[in-house]
């Protein structure tokens, strides 16, 4: 908790960057909303969404960009592996992964305030978004967002640790970016994907970052099943992260003098 609090404060040093991000997210949200409106006017009821659902989905996904760090990065870890500063992190009496998770959740909460609220408010003012009536839905939505953040962290942590093996992690990062944007639902809602591609996309971890929390918000999915799906991926990826951290300590040259 305390570490998350400091993560929040550390990132609050970069308010201008967060606000610039919020502005960009808002502008792109409006652009995407018009594209989706055009699509749903041509094909009403597509994928079980009406126009209001689709526009709400669009602004939710824009709001997730910051906290879920959909464009990758956000962790200083890979840079620290490259420069060897990771050595400092490893002499602390804490699990590297849990420590980074706490710090990253602090970052996510900060961005939730600065980067997620503005586009959502603007979207609601311009288009009128769907808002759940039941407070229970809001609670489940909050839980789903939190799980999404953990899945997002666990995935990015694995990508960052890949720097231990590949010297420069830019390749893995851009591959991860592509997969995340496409399979999270960021580009298009996943339930638009046909047949096996749709099932595959729905089963992969990235859907836990955008599609699942958005569906929980819109009430399009069984809540317990959705949260269970996210929790299972969070647990699996964190477990893998723990294994990879161990392997890194045994195999890897920590760079620098």
């Amino acid at each position: 908790m305390r570490i998350a609090g400091y993560g929040f404060r550390r990132h609050s040093a970069y308010r201008a960057a967060a606000l610039a991000g919020a502005f960009t997210n808002t502008v792109f949200g409006i652009l995407r909303a018009y594209v989706l409106i055009a699509l749903w006017e041509a094909r009403p009821g597509l994928a079980g969404y009406d126009i209001a659902d689709a526009v709400t989905f669009c602004f939710l996904s824009q709001a997730f960009i910051g906290p879920m760090q959909l464009f990758g990065g956000g962790l200083e870890l890979s840079g620290r592996v490259r420069t060897g500063d990771i050595a400092v992190d490893l002499v602390r009496p804490a699990s590297l992964q849990m420590w980074s998770l706490a710090d990253d959740l602090g970052r996510a909460c900060y961005l939730l305030l600065l980067r997620s609220l503005p586009p959502t408010v603007v979207g609601a003012a311009l288009f009128g978004l769907v808002t759940p009536v039941s407070p229970v839905t809001w609670v489940f939505f909050a839980a789903s967002c939190a799980l999404g953040m953990v899945v997002s962290f666990a995935w990015r942590y694995l990508m960052a640790l890949s720097a231990c093996w590949v010297v420069d992690d830019r390749g893995t990062q851009s591959l991860s970016l592509l997969m995340t944007l496409f399979f999270s639902g960021m580009v298009l809602p996943l339930n638009l994907f046909p047949g096996w591609l749709g099932s595959l996309a729905g089963a992969l971890p990235w859907s836990a970052m955008v599609q699942v929390p958005a569906d929980v918000y819109l009430g399009k999915r069984d809540v317990l099943e959705a949260l269970g799906f996210q929790a299972a991926w969070a647990a699996a990826l964190l477990a893998l992260g723990a294994l990879v951290t161990r392997a890194a300590r045994h195999r890897v040259v920590i760079q620098g003098g």
Binding site: G84, A87, V91, P93, S95, G256, G257
Partner: peptide, 19 residues
Amino acid sequence: RTALARKIGVVFGQRTTLW
């Protein structure tokens, strides 16, 4: 490693442990 970390202090002059 973590149990040991509580018993030793380490300074890497070229790096910093501070935030």
